[in-house]
Amino acid sequence: MSEDVPQYLAAHIHDRLADEADELGIRVDIRGDLVYLRGEVATPQQRQRVEAIARDIATGRRIRNEVHVVAVLEPEGEETLS
């Protein structure tokens, strides 16, 4: 099973995040039996969805979900380009 090979597993998770969650910017790293997910998504639901997809593929491994939800703050300041 290519899922046993960490590099292929990371690539397959990355592919499925693109296919099923439309997230292209999540970095997937495998360290031993830990799967690290890093990046930014728009909502807490999307953060959970990303984790669920990774969990579904990476059976037997633990997931470290370090994905952040992007905070859209009120605009402030400006830059003058002269």
Binding site: V70, V72, L73, E74, P75, E76, G77, E78, E79, T80
Partner: peptide, 14 residues
């Protein structure tokens, strides 16, 4: 959006 971390950036040009 994740780079500017605010609803929009404002640039003043002349």
């Amino acid at each position: 959006l994740p780079v500017i971390q605010q609803a929009y950036a404002v640039y003043r040009l002349s």
